[in-house]
């Protein structure tokens, strides 16, 4: 039996615009994330999926509802919810190794353990050859790997990713998706991933939370049952698995319906 790590209970976010007008970006969104599971937030642009993720991270404050991590309400950013952004966030002045050690260092992890964990996670993302390289010497995909290793090495309960592969080329994106599937199994960390890429969502998700746009509401929770609780690799295989095509079609239809409301 898996237990719930994260719970969103009727989360809303209303932005105050000028002249007394307001905009509700997120409207009473509720869902749960189970331990070690990958939950994907999917939806058309303007559905507030990034805002939801930022509220989970504690970088934005909900105007209504409550987010609970474990037993504690989320009140601000913290190391228990590591975040990987779409934009590169490597610290250019630190080597790959020191980037990955950064979170542990500021949280007082002793040097020996820090080094060991950093090397472990750098190996996990396949950058062992670049331990002492600076981020400026790495490609975009490699820099995202550094960000992922840095976040995981810090031992978060939940890994949050905001379109982490959006800036990468197609081939690198596939590699990174497969890498994330491996990481999810090995690092035993729950993840919430925001994307607008349907294939990515089906490939990675244990559960897809589909949000509608203007305002962002949960339209449907989809469990890709055809994967039978596992993750199917490589991607070619997934696409051929019975059930994949139907699910993709269904989500495309949801996307299209949402698009027509605009």
């Amino acid at each position: 039996m898996s237990s719930t790590v994260l719970q969103l209970d009727r989360i809303s976010k209303t932005f105050q615009l000028g002249g007394g007008r307001e905009l509700t970006a997120v409207d009473r969104v509720s869902f749960e994330v189970e331990e070690n599971a990958i939950c994907v937030l999917l939806g058309p642009s303007g559905c507030g999926k990034s805002t939801v993720l930022r509220m989970i991270a504690g970088l934005e404050t909900p105007t209504g509802g409550e987010i609970t991590l474990g037993r504690h309400p989320v009140t601000g950013p913290g190391r228990d919810r590591g975040m990987v952004f779409q934009a590169y966030t490597s610290f250019d002045w630190l080597t790959v190794r020191r980037n990955v050690e950064f979170g542990m260092k500021i949280n007082g992890v002793p040097a020996g353990e820090r080094r060991e964990r950093a090397e472990h996670f750098i190996r996990l993302v396949g950058l062992s050859k670049f331990l002492d390289a600076y981020p400026s010497q790495l490609s975009g995909g490699m820099r995202q790997r550094v960000a992922i290793a840095r976040t995981l090495a810090n031992g978060p309960e939940l890994l949050l990713m905001d379109e982490p592969f959006g800036a990468l080329d197609a081939e690198t994106r596939w590699q990174m998706q497969e890498l994330m599937a491996d990481v999810a199994e090995q690092a035993k960390t729950g993840m919430v991933i925001v994307t607008h890429d349907i294939e990515e969502a089906i490939f990675l998700a244990d559960k897809i939370v589909f949000l509608s746009a203007h305002p962002g509401r949960v339209k449907e929770e989809i469990v890709p049952a055809f994967k039978a609780g596992g993750r199917i690799r490589p991607k070619e295989e997934l696409v051929q698995t019975p059930g994949y095509a139907e699910l993709e079609r269904k989500i495309m239809r949801l996307m299209r319906e949402e698009g027509q409301h605009e």
Binding site: A57, G58, L59, P77, G78, R79, R81, G82, M83, F85, A87, T89, F91, F102, G103, I106, N107, A147, R150, T151, N154, L160
Partner: peptide, 13 residues
């Protein structure tokens, strides 16, 4: 960049 600052915050800084 704000992302660098937010990264630090979510790492526990």
């Amino acid at each position: 960049r704000m992302e660098l600052i937010e990264t630090a915050l979510t790492l526990g800084a």
